[in-house]
Amino acid sequence: MHSCIAGIKMTWLPVVAGLLWVFVTGFIEDTYSTEPVATPLTDTVPWPTTFNLGRAATAAEIKSWDIDVSPNGRGLPAGQGTAITGKIVYQTKCAACHGKTGEAEAGVKLPAPVLVSDTVFVGRKTNTIGNYWPYATTIFDYVRRAMPYHAPQSLTNNEVYAVTAYLLNANRIVKADAVINANTLPRVVMPARKYYVDDDRKGGAEVK
């Protein structure tokens, strides 16, 4: 242990230095060699058809983890709600952070984003569900997975449908008695949808 460096006898030094020289020059030569270098994606040993690692996931496992909802409604569960029941959910479980109604209040700085406004995109003060969100299904997906912030995934599916209906109604998108469920939610046309365009930049000289 202790002999690591202190124990090297002076007379060995030329030998050690020589070894180092061989190592270093060998290394330098390597870097300049024209031999093909294995890229990260190729191996010196051919890959098997499968590595046989991991295991098949069961249908039950997938079902319990798969909570996402797509714009076409795929993933929406059974259940329903309206803005009338949703208002109660909102007031008891959301208003503390998002404000009394979800709308911006003059002079009040909320700890969470403003959720409600009119549906006018041009000249908007902040982005809201009404003036910016392109899909109604995203409200259900996001609220179910991430809200309320301090207790995510604590709402029942009916509560999520109801509070989604409340937010859509408060943003002047659906009527107060509209029933929101797996059938109706994907059909809600969001006012800002028409503004969305894919980024088409691919590099090159142009600044866009």
């Binding site: 909802v69 797509s70 714009p71 996001y142 991430a146 969305y196 980024d199």
Partner: peptide, 23 residues
């Protein structure tokens, strides 16, 4: 198809002229 999650619609998109640029 894309899932259009909150992070790729409400967030991480931006106004370009009179449009909203996504992805």
């Amino acid at each position: 198809q894309p899932f259009m999650t909150r992070e790729e619609t409400s967030k991480y998109t931006y106004a370009v002229k009179d449009k909203i640029r996504q992805f």
